[in-house]
Write a protein that binds this DNA or RNA. Sequence first.
DNA 1: GGTAGACCTGGACGC
DNA 2: GCGTCCAGGTCTACC
Length: 298
Amino acid sequence: VTELLLSAASPFSLPAVVQSHGWVQLAPFVADKDGCGFRYLAHLDSDRVVELHAREAPNGVQVTVDTTLTGVERVEVADKVRWMVGLEQDLSAFYTVARSDPKLSHVEGQARGRMLRSATVFEDVVKTILTTNTTWSGTKRMVEALATFYGAPLPADETRHAFPTPQRLAEADEPALRTESKLGYRAPYVLQLAREVTAGAVNLEELKTLDLSTPELRKRLLAIKGVGPYAVASLLMLLGHYDFVPVDSWAFKLVSHEWHNGAPIGKAEVEQAFADWGEWKALAYWFRAWSYQESSGQ
DNA sequence: GGTAGACCTGGACGC
DNA sequence: GCGTCCAGGTCTACC
Protein backbone atom coordinates (compact mmCIF):
# COMPACT_ATOMS: atom_id res chain seq x y z
CA VAL A 1 0.00 0.00 0.00
CA THR A 2 1.22 3.45 -0.92
CA GLU A 3 -0.05 6.75 0.45
CA LEU A 4 0.39 10.13 -1.18
CA LEU A 5 -0.71 13.56 -0.05
CA LEU A 6 -1.32 16.20 -2.69
CA SER A 7 -1.69 19.75 -1.48
CA ALA A 8 -4.21 22.16 -2.96
CA ALA A 9 -4.42 25.93 -2.92
CA SER A 10 -7.64 27.27 -1.42
CA PRO A 11 -10.42 27.19 -2.47
CA PHE A 12 -10.49 23.51 -3.37
CA SER A 13 -13.08 20.84 -2.73
CA LEU A 14 -12.68 17.24 -3.82
CA PRO A 15 -16.43 16.54 -3.47
CA ALA A 16 -17.08 19.51 -5.76
CA VAL A 17 -14.79 17.95 -8.36
CA VAL A 18 -16.30 14.48 -7.97
CA GLN A 19 -19.79 15.90 -8.40
CA SER A 20 -18.88 18.34 -11.17
CA HIS A 21 -20.33 16.16 -13.95
CA GLY A 22 -21.13 12.56 -14.78
CA TRP A 23 -17.55 11.37 -15.32
CA VAL A 24 -17.32 9.65 -11.95
CA GLN A 25 -20.11 7.30 -13.09
CA LEU A 26 -18.02 6.08 -16.02
CA ALA A 27 -15.60 3.14 -15.81
CA PRO A 28 -13.00 2.83 -14.51
CA PHE A 29 -14.15 5.36 -11.92
CA VAL A 30 -16.13 4.29 -8.91
CA ALA A 31 -17.58 7.03 -6.73
CA ASP A 32 -17.31 6.70 -2.97
CA LYS A 33 -20.71 6.11 -1.40
CA ASP A 34 -20.68 9.51 0.24
CA GLY A 35 -19.82 11.15 -3.07
CA CYS A 36 -16.78 12.83 -1.55
CA GLY A 37 -14.02 10.81 -3.19
CA PHE A 38 -13.44 8.21 -5.88
CA ARG A 39 -11.58 5.08 -6.87
CA TYR A 40 -9.98 4.68 -10.29
CA LEU A 41 -8.05 1.95 -12.06
CA ALA A 42 -4.94 3.44 -13.62
CA HIS A 43 -2.86 1.80 -16.31
CA LEU A 44 0.66 3.01 -15.52
CA ASP A 45 3.56 3.49 -17.93
CA SER A 46 5.23 0.52 -16.22
CA ASP A 47 2.29 -1.46 -17.67
CA ARG A 48 0.94 -2.20 -14.21
CA VAL A 49 -2.73 -1.62 -13.42
CA VAL A 50 -3.33 -0.24 -9.94
CA GLU A 51 -6.39 0.94 -8.07
CA LEU A 52 -6.12 4.33 -6.49
CA HIS A 53 -8.46 5.90 -3.99
CA ALA A 54 -8.68 9.68 -3.73
CA ARG A 55 -10.22 11.22 -0.63
CA GLU A 56 -10.49 14.68 0.77
CA ALA A 57 -7.70 15.68 3.13
CA PRO A 58 -7.50 18.81 5.29
CA ASN A 59 -5.30 20.69 2.84
CA GLY A 60 -5.74 18.73 -0.38
CA VAL A 61 -6.18 15.17 -1.55
CA GLN A 62 -5.14 11.94 0.10
CA VAL A 63 -4.35 9.18 -2.41
CA THR A 64 -4.14 5.52 -1.40
CA VAL A 65 -2.90 2.93 -3.88
CA ASP A 66 -3.66 -0.76 -3.38
CA THR A 67 -0.07 -1.88 -3.82
CA THR A 68 3.51 -0.79 -3.26
CA LEU A 69 4.73 1.53 -5.98
CA THR A 70 8.20 2.23 -7.29
CA GLY A 71 9.46 5.79 -7.07
CA VAL A 72 8.71 6.38 -10.73
CA GLU A 73 5.20 5.00 -10.33
CA ARG A 74 4.55 7.22 -7.31
CA VAL A 75 5.41 10.26 -9.39
CA GLU A 76 3.14 9.09 -12.19
CA VAL A 77 0.20 8.45 -9.88
CA ALA A 78 0.65 11.84 -8.23
CA ASP A 79 0.79 13.56 -11.63
CA LYS A 80 -2.28 11.70 -12.84
CA VAL A 81 -4.39 12.53 -9.81
CA ARG A 82 -3.29 16.18 -9.84
CA TRP A 83 -4.48 16.38 -13.44
CA MET A 84 -7.70 14.46 -12.79
CA VAL A 85 -8.86 16.79 -10.02
CA GLY A 86 -7.44 19.95 -11.59
CA LEU A 87 -5.08 20.93 -8.79
CA GLU A 88 -3.16 23.22 -11.14
CA GLN A 89 -6.19 25.34 -11.91
CA ASP A 90 -6.68 28.86 -10.64
CA LEU A 91 -10.29 29.98 -11.01
CA SER A 92 -10.04 33.18 -8.97
CA ALA A 93 -10.79 35.40 -11.99
CA PHE A 94 -13.96 33.41 -12.65
CA TYR A 95 -14.98 33.64 -9.00
CA THR A 96 -14.54 37.39 -9.08
CA VAL A 97 -17.01 37.86 -11.94
CA ALA A 98 -19.34 35.14 -10.63
CA ARG A 99 -19.88 37.08 -7.37
CA SER A 100 -22.03 39.61 -9.17
CA ASP A 101 -24.52 37.04 -10.51
CA PRO A 102 -26.93 35.62 -7.91
CA LYS A 103 -27.20 32.42 -9.96
CA LEU A 104 -23.46 31.89 -9.79
CA SER A 105 -22.39 33.52 -6.56
CA HIS A 106 -22.36 30.10 -4.86
CA VAL A 107 -19.45 28.78 -6.90
CA GLU A 108 -16.65 30.39 -4.93
CA GLY A 109 -17.82 29.28 -1.51
CA GLN A 110 -18.37 25.75 -2.76
CA ALA A 111 -15.16 25.77 -4.80
CA ARG A 112 -17.10 24.74 -7.88
CA GLY A 113 -15.58 25.02 -11.34
CA ARG A 114 -13.09 22.17 -11.65
CA MET A 115 -14.32 19.35 -13.88
CA LEU A 116 -13.30 15.79 -13.06
CA ARG A 117 -10.96 14.45 -15.77
CA SER A 118 -9.82 10.99 -16.73
CA ALA A 119 -6.13 10.18 -16.39
CA THR A 120 -5.39 10.72 -20.07
CA VAL A 121 -6.70 13.12 -22.69
CA PHE A 122 -7.17 10.10 -24.95
CA GLU A 123 -9.61 8.60 -22.46
CA ASP A 124 -11.53 11.85 -22.17
CA VAL A 125 -11.76 12.28 -25.93
CA VAL A 126 -13.07 8.74 -26.40
CA LYS A 127 -15.56 9.15 -23.56
CA THR A 128 -16.73 12.44 -24.98
CA ILE A 129 -17.28 10.87 -28.41
CA LEU A 130 -19.33 8.24 -26.59
CA THR A 131 -21.58 10.91 -25.07
CA THR A 132 -22.68 12.16 -28.49
CA ASN A 133 -25.95 11.21 -30.10
CA THR A 134 -26.90 8.78 -27.36
CA THR A 135 -28.34 8.69 -23.87
CA TRP A 136 -26.32 8.80 -20.66
CA SER A 137 -27.14 5.16 -19.99
CA GLY A 138 -25.81 4.37 -23.47
CA THR A 139 -22.58 6.22 -22.72
CA LYS A 140 -22.12 4.31 -19.46
CA ARG A 141 -22.74 1.02 -21.22
CA MET A 142 -20.28 1.73 -24.04
CA VAL A 143 -17.50 2.90 -21.72
CA GLU A 144 -18.03 -0.11 -19.48
CA ALA A 145 -17.82 -2.41 -22.49
CA LEU A 146 -14.61 -0.80 -23.73
CA ALA A 147 -12.98 -1.30 -20.35
CA THR A 148 -14.22 -4.86 -20.00
CA PHE A 149 -13.22 -6.03 -23.47
CA TYR A 150 -10.08 -4.02 -24.12
CA GLY A 151 -8.77 -2.67 -20.80
CA ALA A 152 -5.95 -4.37 -18.92
CA PRO A 153 -7.17 -6.25 -15.83
CA LEU A 154 -6.39 -5.32 -12.24
CA PRO A 155 -4.13 -8.10 -10.89
CA ALA A 156 -5.94 -8.19 -7.54
CA ASP A 157 -9.33 -8.65 -9.23
CA GLU A 158 -9.22 -9.61 -12.89
CA THR A 159 -12.91 -8.92 -13.40
CA ARG A 160 -12.08 -5.22 -13.19
CA HIS A 161 -10.22 -3.35 -15.90
CA ALA A 162 -8.48 -0.07 -16.55
CA PHE A 163 -9.58 2.03 -19.48
CA PRO A 164 -7.89 0.67 -22.62
CA THR A 165 -4.70 2.35 -23.73
CA PRO A 166 -4.62 3.55 -27.35
CA GLN A 167 -2.33 0.61 -28.13
CA ARG A 168 -4.77 -1.97 -26.80
CA LEU A 169 -7.73 -0.33 -28.52
CA ALA A 170 -5.83 -0.02 -31.80
CA GLU A 171 -5.73 -3.81 -31.96
CA ALA A 172 -9.49 -4.14 -31.74
CA ASP A 173 -11.39 -5.01 -34.87
CA GLU A 174 -14.16 -2.80 -36.00
CA PRO A 175 -17.02 -5.31 -36.20
CA ALA A 176 -16.40 -6.36 -32.60
CA LEU A 177 -16.28 -2.74 -31.44
CA ARG A 178 -19.52 -2.08 -33.24
CA THR A 179 -21.50 -5.03 -32.03
CA GLU A 180 -19.99 -6.41 -28.81
CA SER A 181 -19.16 -3.04 -27.33
CA LYS A 182 -22.31 -1.50 -28.87
CA LEU A 183 -20.43 1.53 -30.15
CA GLY A 184 -22.37 1.31 -33.40
CA TYR A 185 -21.29 3.85 -36.01
CA ARG A 186 -18.88 5.43 -33.48
CA ALA A 187 -16.64 2.36 -33.62
CA PRO A 188 -14.59 3.54 -36.64
CA TYR A 189 -14.08 6.95 -35.01
CA VAL A 190 -12.70 5.47 -31.81
CA LEU A 191 -10.61 2.97 -33.71
CA GLN A 192 -9.14 5.57 -36.01
CA LEU A 193 -8.21 7.78 -33.07
CA ALA A 194 -6.61 4.89 -31.18
CA ARG A 195 -4.58 3.95 -34.24
CA GLU A 196 -3.45 7.50 -34.96
CA VAL A 197 -2.36 8.00 -31.36
CA THR A 198 -0.56 4.67 -31.37
CA ALA A 199 1.20 5.53 -34.62
CA GLY A 200 2.27 8.87 -33.21
CA ALA A 201 0.34 10.81 -35.85
CA VAL A 202 -1.75 12.45 -33.12
CA ASN A 203 -0.46 13.49 -29.71
CA LEU A 204 -3.27 14.15 -27.28
CA GLU A 205 -1.36 14.03 -24.03
CA GLU A 206 0.77 17.01 -24.99
CA LEU A 207 -2.41 19.08 -24.87
CA LYS A 208 -2.16 18.95 -21.07
CA THR A 209 0.95 21.09 -21.10
CA LEU A 210 1.30 22.75 -24.50
CA ASP A 211 -0.67 25.86 -23.47
CA LEU A 212 -2.20 26.44 -26.91
CA SER A 213 -4.64 29.24 -27.60
CA THR A 214 -8.29 28.24 -27.56
CA PRO A 215 -8.67 28.53 -31.37
CA GLU A 216 -5.58 26.41 -31.99
CA LEU A 217 -6.66 23.79 -29.45
CA ARG A 218 -10.14 23.78 -30.90
CA LYS A 219 -8.84 23.29 -34.42
CA ARG A 220 -6.79 20.28 -33.34
CA LEU A 221 -9.68 18.64 -31.53
CA LEU A 222 -12.12 19.25 -34.38
CA ALA A 223 -9.75 17.36 -36.66
CA ILE A 224 -10.66 14.20 -34.73
CA LYS A 225 -13.45 12.34 -36.48
CA GLY A 226 -16.48 12.11 -34.22
CA VAL A 227 -15.67 15.40 -32.49
CA GLY A 228 -17.99 18.19 -33.63
CA PRO A 229 -19.12 21.51 -32.14
CA TYR A 230 -20.66 20.05 -29.01
CA ALA A 231 -17.90 17.57 -28.23
CA VAL A 232 -15.15 20.11 -28.82
CA ALA A 233 -16.75 22.58 -26.41
CA SER A 234 -16.95 19.84 -23.76
CA LEU A 235 -13.35 18.86 -24.33
CA LEU A 236 -12.17 22.45 -24.22
CA MET A 237 -13.92 22.79 -20.88
CA LEU A 238 -12.16 19.69 -19.57
CA LEU A 239 -8.88 21.17 -20.76
CA GLY A 240 -9.55 24.43 -18.96
CA HIS A 241 -10.79 26.57 -21.83
CA TYR A 242 -14.27 27.96 -21.29
CA ASP A 243 -14.88 30.15 -24.34
CA PHE A 244 -17.48 27.82 -25.89
CA VAL A 245 -20.71 26.52 -24.38
CA PRO A 246 -21.28 22.82 -25.09
CA VAL A 247 -24.67 23.11 -26.74
CA ASP A 248 -26.65 19.89 -26.71
CA SER A 249 -30.37 19.18 -26.46
CA TRP A 250 -30.20 19.64 -22.69
CA ALA A 251 -28.80 23.14 -23.13
CA PHE A 252 -31.81 24.04 -25.26
CA LYS A 253 -34.10 22.86 -22.50
CA LEU A 254 -32.32 24.79 -19.77
CA VAL A 255 -31.98 28.05 -21.67
CA SER A 256 -35.47 27.87 -23.08
CA HIS A 257 -37.06 27.45 -19.65
CA GLU A 258 -34.82 30.08 -18.12
CA TRP A 259 -35.35 32.88 -20.64
CA HIS A 260 -37.83 31.88 -23.36
CA ASN A 261 -40.83 30.45 -21.48
CA GLY A 262 -40.07 26.95 -22.72
CA ALA A 263 -40.43 27.90 -26.37
CA PRO A 264 -38.25 26.12 -28.94
CA ILE A 265 -34.87 27.84 -29.41
CA GLY A 266 -31.71 27.35 -31.44
CA LYS A 267 -27.99 27.40 -30.82
CA ALA A 268 -27.87 31.16 -31.31
CA GLU A 269 -30.12 31.73 -28.29
CA VAL A 270 -27.92 29.58 -26.07
CA GLU A 271 -24.79 31.40 -27.17
CA GLN A 272 -26.50 34.75 -26.78
CA ALA A 273 -27.37 33.92 -23.18
CA PHE A 274 -23.70 33.59 -22.26
CA ALA A 275 -22.16 36.09 -24.65
CA ASP A 276 -21.21 38.44 -21.82
CA TRP A 277 -19.20 35.84 -19.93
CA GLY A 278 -16.13 36.10 -22.16
CA GLU A 279 -13.58 33.44 -21.30
CA TRP A 280 -15.88 31.94 -18.66
CA LYS A 281 -18.92 31.06 -20.78
CA ALA A 282 -18.81 27.30 -20.29
CA LEU A 283 -18.38 27.54 -16.51
CA ALA A 284 -21.19 30.08 -16.25
CA TYR A 285 -23.38 27.70 -18.21
CA TRP A 286 -22.40 24.51 -16.42
CA PHE A 287 -22.49 25.71 -12.83
CA ARG A 288 -25.43 28.09 -13.06
CA ALA A 289 -28.21 27.46 -10.58
CA TRP A 290 -30.82 26.71 -13.26
CA SER A 291 -34.49 27.01 -12.43
CA TYR A 292 -35.36 24.07 -14.68
CA GLN A 293 -34.78 20.73 -12.98
CA GLU A 294 -34.67 17.24 -14.44
CA SER A 295 -37.38 14.96 -13.08
CA SER A 296 -36.27 11.68 -14.63
CA GLY A 297 -32.69 11.65 -13.39
CA GLN A 298 -30.08 8.95 -13.83
C1' DG B 1 -21.09 28.67 -45.53
C1' DG B 2 -25.24 26.28 -44.69
C1' DT B 3 -28.04 21.93 -44.52
C1' DA B 4 -30.63 17.10 -45.68
C1' DG B 5 -30.05 12.63 -44.91
C1' DA B 6 -27.55 8.72 -43.02
C1' DC B 7 -25.61 6.71 -39.08
C1' DC B 8 -26.73 3.01 -34.48
C1' DT B 9 -28.78 1.89 -30.21
C1' DG B 10 -32.21 1.45 -26.80
C1' DG B 11 -36.37 2.96 -24.93
C1' DA B 12 -41.32 4.28 -25.58
C1' DC B 13 -45.40 3.22 -27.63
C1' DG B 14 -49.08 0.85 -30.27
C1' DC B 15 -50.73 -3.38 -31.53
C1' DG C 1 -43.89 -10.23 -27.70
C1' DC C 2 -43.15 -7.79 -31.91
C1' DG C 3 -42.80 -3.89 -35.07
C1' DT C 4 -42.51 1.21 -35.58
C1' DC C 5 -40.98 5.55 -34.22
C1' DC C 6 -37.99 8.70 -32.06
C1' DA C 7 -34.00 11.03 -29.48
C1' DG C 8 -29.32 11.92 -29.37
C1' DG C 9 -24.51 14.91 -32.40
C1' DT C 10 -21.57 14.39 -36.37
C1' DC C 11 -20.29 13.21 -41.05
C1' DT C 12 -20.72 13.45 -45.93
C1' DA C 13 -22.49 15.13 -50.01
C1' DC C 14 -24.43 18.59 -52.27
C1' DC C 15 -26.03 23.31 -52.96
